Structures are given as structure tokens and as C-alpha cells.
Simulated assay, not measured.
Amino acid sequence: MARHHYLGDLPKLGETLWYVATWRGQWLAQLTLSAAALKCGVRDRWIGWDFRSQYDRLKLIANNSRFLILPQGRFPNVGSRVLGLLERRVAADWQRHFGHSLLLLETFVDPRRFHGGVYRAANWLALGKTRGYRRTRTGYSDEAEAPKWVFVRPLHRRATALLIHPDRDRLGLTGTPKMQLNAHQMRSLPLCFAAIPDPRRAQGRRHRLPVVLALAAGATLCGLRGYKAMAEWAADLGQAARARFGCRRRRMNGKDHHYEVPSEFVIRDCLVRIDAGALDAALASWQKAWGLIDEALAIDGKTMKGAIDDEGRQAHIMSVVGHESEHCYAQKKSVPCL
């Protein structure tokens, strides 16, 4: 791959599998399947998913990031034949190695070099072209470069319907639902918490309360739980993301700006001190502006085992949860029945 492919070899990107096509013991072609592109406008519009479900289900798509037909494999129809063999086994291979199946394959073709004839012959769908911006360490390139053709190949006859299906269990997804925050959502989170009073002393306060709460909420929306996980998620943010959250800025080496994030202690200290009702109202306002609109709500009540109030009665909690988003809109202590 490193010797013959014009882009060279590709390091491991998330969940990655390598394939070799052989004929009578001789290598004919090599393929690399890796993590799907984080954002692709034509693909995302074709699927029809929203920002909340996209990040959580992106792992159900794999990117054919490299496809090389070796010099000794230049036979008629060998490319489409190799792609056909790949489609038959890749879902089972992915399930065996990573614990979940695949619903869709994608790839990008540079029209300056190729016209995608191999993918068209293998019945891949040409969705259109990208805008031409490429990812950099600081975000995306300032100017559009070479737009690429986007091809996809569904591995299930209802691939798009399953990718947007609200039931995660039906897709075999485990763990907490996750999402990916975009730049506008990062900037909006601190604004939702601006009205909450800061219970900390002014002396020694380094991080603004709306920023701390926004980082904690962002980590939770992305599937993290616990103070340590929130702090690690914040520490992994790049400088551009930290700036969007409004993190504290200080100069390093006399010229470069460096944005600092709060520690685990600061996050825990703020969350245990603030008023829970004010925090719930702020999160509800953000959910109303950015969240998925639920067609139905579920109301459920629980008796908290071992939780006794000041009057010696067990605490009863009522919760309201959205069917589609699985978001908890409210959780209140109910009035005891007499």
C-alpha cells in the first residue's frame, strides 16, 4: 500500500480492518476500512439523521479509506469483483472484531484522478460532491480545495431507516446515548447557565460558573458520566473548542494564547453547590432550542429505597422522559398521597 497507492499507507483510524484479495496465492488488491467521516453534508442529508443521533450511530458506517489494485492484479472486472466479495463478509467481520455490525459503506473519490468507475460498476450510489474543505489541526481549511465524489453502499435494504430509528436496542447499540456538539451548540451552552448565581467565594475563582457547567453538560451530552470523566473530556478538547466554551485564556511563551479547563475538583465543587432547580431549568431551555422534538412523553414514578425525608416518609420521584430523544425533561419529588 505504501509503495503503490498515491496517498500512501494509512494509520489506524478508530475501528479499522485491512483486507487482501488473492487469486491462487497471489495478492491482487488491498483494502482498508476505517472509521467514517465525522461530517459529510451530502451523506448526512441522504441519511436524514439529526445531530443527536448522528454521533451515536456513526460507528455503523465504515469508510473505504484505501483501495489498491496491485500491478499484478490488473484484470477485467477485478475491482468490482473485490468490492462485491467485501460486501458479503464485512458486516460479519465487523461484528466479530468490534461487537457491532455495519449498515453502510462510504468512500471518497478524487475526480482529478479517478471517475469512480469501479464503485459504479459495483452498484455503489454516487450522492454528490463534498464542499472541498479538509480537516486541519485547528478545524477546517480556510479555502475549499478539491471537492470529492461521495459514494455509499448500503449493506442492509433498510439501512437509512435503521440509521434514524429511535430504538437503539434494535440497532444493537449499548451504553449511554452519545452526540457530537457543533460549534454553535458549544457557544450556546454557557449562555444557558449565565443566570445561575455562583455559590463560590469570589476570592480565588479562576473559572466562570457558566463555563464549568457548560463543560459538564457537554461531557454528559457526549455520553460521559462522573466527575472524573467530565474533567478528562474537557482536558481532551482542542484549543478551538475551549475557546467556543469561553474557557479562561492566558498567554504562554509571551505570544500564544492557551485556554485552560477546570479540574475535576472544580467541576465537582460547582455541581454539588448550585441549585438543582435552576440547573434543570437551564438545561430544559437548551433542550428546547437544540434538542430533538419528542412526539410523546413518558411519565414514571419511583419510590426511592432507603431515602427518608424530614417527616419520616419515603421519597417518591416523578420523571418525564422523551420517547425519541430519551431525554429526561424533569425529575421532581412528588407530593405524598395521604
Rank of each mutant, 00 (worst) to 15 (best):
V211Q: 08
C247G: 03
V212H: 06
C247F: 05
G204V: 04
F245A: 01
E264N: 04
F193L: 13
A235S: 11
R242H: 06
A214L: 07
R250K: 13
E232R: 15
R187K: 12
G238M: 05
L209W: 10
G204M: 03
Y259C: 10
A243L: 06
G226W: 03
D256V: 15
T220Q: 13
V261C: 05
R187G: 05
Y227K: 11
R201G: 14
R242C: 14
M186S: 06
R242A: 06
I267Q: 05
V261Q: 04
A235D: 14
L215W: 11
G204E: 08
G254E: 07
Y259T: 11
P190A: 04
D256W: 02
A234N: 08
H257R: 12
V211E: 04
E232F: 11
D236G: 03
R200G: 02
H258I: 12
W233S: 02
A195I: 08
L209K: 07
L191T: 08
Y259P: 10
I267F: 08
R205W: 06
G223D: 06
L191A: 13
E232H: 14
V211L: 08
G223S: 11
R244M: 02
C222R: 02
V261A: 11
R200F: 00
R206M: 06
R187F: 00
L191S: 09
A194T: 10
L224Q: 15
A235F: 09
P197V: 02
A216N: 01
R200W: 00
L224C: 15
I196L: 11
H258P: 03
R268H: 12
R200A: 08
L209F: 03
E264A: 00
V211H: 03
A216S: 12
A229Q: 14
A243P: 00
A240R: 06
Y227H: 13
A195C: 09
A217F: 04
P210Q: 07
G226H: 07
I267S: 03
D256L: 11
W233L: 00
D198G: 05
K255P: 07
A216Y: 01
A219V: 01
E232W: 14
R208N: 07
L224A: 15
A235P: 04
Y227R: 13
P190Q: 02
K228L: 04
L191W: 05
I267V: 15
R225F: 05
L221F: 12
A234C: 11
V212F: 05
L213K: 05
R244G: 00
R250N: 10
E264L: 03
M186F: 09
G254D: 08
R200H: 09
W233N: 01
Y259A: 13
R248Q: 09
G246T: 01
L224M: 14
H207I: 04
Q185E: 13
G218D: 09
Y259I: 05
S188I: 09
H207L: 02
T220P: 01
C247A: 06
G226P: 09
L191Q: 14
H258W: 15
M230A: 13
M186W: 03
D236V: 00
P190N: 03
A219W: 11
L213H: 07
Y227M: 14
H257Q: 12
V211S: 03
R249F: 02
R244H: 12
F265G: 15
A241V: 05
A217T: 15
R242L: 12
T220I: 01
A219R: 10
R187D: 01
A243R: 13
D236T: 02
C222W: 00
P197N: 10
E260G: 09
M252P: 00
P190M: 04
G223N: 13
P190K: 07
